[in-house]
Nucleic acid binder design. Structure first.
Lengths: 229, 229
DNA sequence: AGAAGGACCAGTGGTCCGTA
DNA sequence: AGAAGGACCAGTGGTCCGTA
């Protein structure tokens, strides 16, 4: 809170960027509506304040797009989804700089504080439930772009919805974790773009379950070996 | 919570250690009182359960002791204080091992969870407000044992109380931080015994204030230089 | 039916202040 | 007066579920 008071100028300029990006992504439906309402109210300037309270349109839902493909109609593509994660990283870095300037404790992750900062900076396209929901999809994008891109093409081709694609992102990640002693935390921590995100509960559970399965397999295998030779 | 259910055996054995250490430190006042009460109630076994609800005696207050000195009377010495920080570290390491076994998120700091674990393990001498209160004293002990020991001897000699000694621990730490760009967080993080403790708010503030002071000094100095040469 | 996100909740970091 | 620690509180991580 104090951080933002001290840096209003910086945030205000950021805010313009945020709105700009928002307009591009959402197709400026909200802004158009706002502009029209403003025009039709030219005479009643007092109510201008109330305008700010107007309900903001939801973001368009995501659809499965190929790498580089822009979503048509009232939809957003997956490149845009991943772009939001990069925006969050930028906001975190700003919050970190400000915290250090002021000798305050410095977040290492995208926390509630960062989401609040992003919102104040005008990035209404960013919210916590959404970002947490797709973290593991972004993780696959960071850790194995080829597999991620292949999955996107495959799910687009077969006309699957975003929920199905999202589910399908878990398996390749569990396989990657298996190559690193099923330690998904260390995988996240050793990648600069991922280390700022909390490991999603479900992903951690899947990696753990897979470890237990493969452990019992390899135990019985080595037992087998032991018995045979 | 689930962690503890799954590891009751381990905790129970620890609990004995905890009680043992507690007895040694506190002079077993509580245990004696408990034993006497138990004896005098030999006939009424049903009320044995209620015994557990009995109020536990507070820890004896700390006094300033020299390194190696054991406190006399109903007092605890500073070696014992620092020993509690090491106990907390052990408890954290146990919690970490258990968390990893169960594929749960793994704390890197002494959190509420660790304090709860310590209490369940019988370490009633450990509590959050106390440990947080003296963190910076322990930090000085870790970072510059000579200065820390010297300070203890000096404050003991002049008959100062624990509060005064505690206050006096801030300055040497701020001086150490100044040698590391006033970055107290990085100092804590690079020492294995300290990295598990949150940097105390007041210590961080003092380091920051000192940075601003010395920054304005060095600025005017370099300005001076610039003007003169 | 599929999806976005406001809003809630259990448990956290932080420390005050009633207690001994 | 000096000190130990129960207990409170604002703001967190996590995600459900009323909404569109």
């Amino acid at each position: 809170r104090r951080i933002q008071d001290h840096h209003q100028l910086r945030i205000d300029s950021l805010s313009q960027e945020g709105v700009q990006q928002h307009k591009e992504a959402v197709g400026s439906t909200w802004d158009v509506r706002k502009r029209m309402r403003s025009r039709s109210k030219m005479m009643s300037d007092e109510e201008e304040e109330e305008e700010e309270e107007e309900e903001r349109q939801r973001e368009h839902p995501f659809i499965v797009t190929e790498p580089g493909e822009v979503a048509r109609g009232k939809k957003n593509g997956l490149d845009y989804l991943f772009h939001l994660y990069e925006q969050c990283r930028d906001f975190l870095i700003q919050v970190q700089h400000i915290a250090k300037e002021h000798g305050q404790k410095c977040p290492t992750k995208v926390t509630n504080q960062v989401f609040r900062f992003a919102k104040k900076a005008g990035a209404h396209c960013i919210n916590k439930p959404k970002m947490r929901h797709y973290v593991h999809c972004y993780a696959l994008h960071c850790l194995d772009k080829d597999t991620s891109n292949q999955l996107r093409r495959q799910f687009k081709e077969t006309g699957q919805n975003v929920g199905a694609w999202r589910q399908a992102c878990y398996n390749p990640l569990v396989a990657i974790a298996a190559l690193h002693h099923h330690d998904i935390d260390s995988i996240f921590n050793s990648h600069p773009c991922l280390s700022i995100w909390y490991v999603p509960t479900k992903l951690r559970q899947l990696c753990h379950a897979h470890r237990n399965n493969s452990a019992s397999t390899s135990t019985s295998t080595s037992t087998h070996h032991h018995l045979l030779f």
